[in-house]
Write a protein that binds this DNA or RNA. Structure first.
Lengths: 192, 192, 192, 192
DNA sequence: CATGAATGAGGGTTCATTCAT
DNA sequence: CATGAATGAACCCTCATTCAT
């Protein structure tokens, strides 16, 4: 795919993260991408129009990680743990970007595209849950689609607390993951 | 009392919500507050420095609503429902502001203050849970402090999905609330 | 005389010297004077209108020093040395202010007052030279009035070089003074 | 060559002279230079940072005039007269700028550069004096370097008196020049 | 396609000045 | 007389966007 466009997106991710939306200049992005000021406008119409492309890259990244790191041959318990790990890691790297996307774009034309971009993520997680239900791990009365969204929101918000607000240590992050897992299991699993 | 400062904060909330951070001008804020441009700078050093004050106001608002609308004489089930209602309503009104606070201020000096501002919220919810535990509604092995944070994150993220991303209808909002409640109960309650 | 007015003038001298005209704010001056912002305008109509008052203070200061430090009982040689000392010292303290006065006020209404303010200085120096001529120290063909102005200009510019541009050490200042004296003597004295 | 920078400097000279530092707006300068507001900031960081560039231009101008108008084939007496003429003329045109340079920049970072800018001027005058000494016009005991600085200061301050303070007529200017020359000759020449 | 110098509208911020207390 | 909070016009400077090369 187009090399320059990629460079812009990745430079934008870095700069947005470092400086925040408000203080990010197109000139910072092009400097990071190693291209000329004008070249930016051959690929994007404005600073904000990079956002959906960033979101796409991040969801792709998430899916890759899930497919790579969640081992289907293991017990569901273990898989769930791996899912939490991935979400925490991706959130660590990108959550501030997600926040920006809808903070910067609230009441803009780009928010529409959001759901479409997130779709593969929801689908993958849906399939993951279905498979577990088939194995009779999950509650019979659990409806998958809504639960998927709740679970994703739950894990993400826990990760946010760790990485954004409280800026916790590695050990505390591990503890937080265990708490989320515990909480989720009670919410999702069959009672023994 | 500090009448002008109050006016600025409330005008800022309105304008940020209407236009987003990026497009909000200080001149809009002062127009809304009915004061002169220069007066703004007697109270705040910049546009962004209003953010923590806004956050404080919103947490206060949340606490007021909780105290007003969560009826301690009712069953815990009902109270939990009321809590979810309040969080959904406040999120509906202010979540875009919350998003802005950390989107606009990622990597800034203000993020530090965040936890301190949220503290009363966590404390209230902690007390609420303790009371329920005393009534033997909640699981014995539930540790309250971490659960409080998870629950708040869970409800907020559900509310976000309803009001920010998916922009769902009233009926769908009601359904989402029930799903969250269901999810929470399984996660928190004693098994029968 | 009016205490507050005095305070303003002296604070203004300090601040102008420290920050330069451009960056001096009325608020700095009143802070230095220990009075309220509005009080300034009871005594002066604007920032620039303090200038003539400052100039007056400085010429007064100069005259005081001359009368105090130039000893009429000594040889003219010695007296000339003392004159140079005074000019150097006053220049050290105030020359940047003098510069400002006409830099800031070039093409302004205040420049007119300048000559009048400087007048006592020229007169004193004129009397000083006349007395020396009577003692047959100075050249017979020396016309006093123009020489006085040249001498003042010469000493001042030498002092400027020392204190403004080259920022020389104490030793170098002493040397410069000797050079000026030598130069002046050749220009003014009778040939032996 | 660096056409825009040149244009800015020359426009700045004009505007500073017309309005004084305080009242000069960047927008005036760019209007005079026929460029856009933003272009100014590609070449200079602020209004004040043009000052050293202006000083450089003026010293260049001075040197050009000296080389053009001081005729080496004439007697030293005549040459000295021509030097005074040049200094008076340049001072007439630019002294208010010089005043501004250090008035506006007192206590600033730019004052340091001053000596370096003046250097060619001092050097030229030094060479001029050496040549005269070789011809046995000047006193044997005259040390050239310090005298050069004194002479330049003397002529400049005389010119200032004529053009800045006293705003004298053409005839008076001529008379002042003769006085300076007379003064200088006594200070510099061998006794007959 | 790529460049980067030039643009200029626009907004943040300052600060001299006022005036009710 | 003295105050200092409030004012708002004025100005600096930024930075997204363009366009000739």
């Amino acid at each position: 795919m187009d090399n320059k466009k990629e460079k812009i997106i990745h430079a934008a991710i870095d700069v947005f993260q470092e400086k925040g939306i408000e203080k990010t200049k197109v000139s910072d992005i092009v400097k990071g991408a190693g291209i000329a000021q004008g070249t930016f406008y051959l690929y994007f119409s404005s600073k904000l129009s990079v956002m959906p492309a960033i979101a796409e890259v991040m969801v792709e990244k998430m899916m890759e990680e899930m497919k790579e790191r969640v081992n289907e041959t293991r017990l569901f318990d273990k898989q769930l743990e791996q899912v939490v790990d991935v979400v925490f890691d991706i959130t660590k790297s990108y959550r501030s970007i997600f926040a920006m996307v809808y903070a910067g774009l609230a009441s803009s034309e780009y928010l529409q595209q959001w759901e479409k971009i997130y779709q593969p993520y929801y689908e993958w997680m849906g399939a993951f849950f279905k498979q577990a239900k088939a194995k009779e791990v999950l509650r019979d009365d659990l409806s998958i689609e809504p639960s998927v969204k709740l679970v994703i929101g739950l894990i993400e918000s826990a990760a946010e607390q760790v990485y954004l607000y409280d800026q916790l240590s590695k050990e505390e992050a591990v503890k937080k993951k265990q708490e989320v897992l515990e909480f989720m299991k009670h919410a999702l699993y069959k009672k023994q």
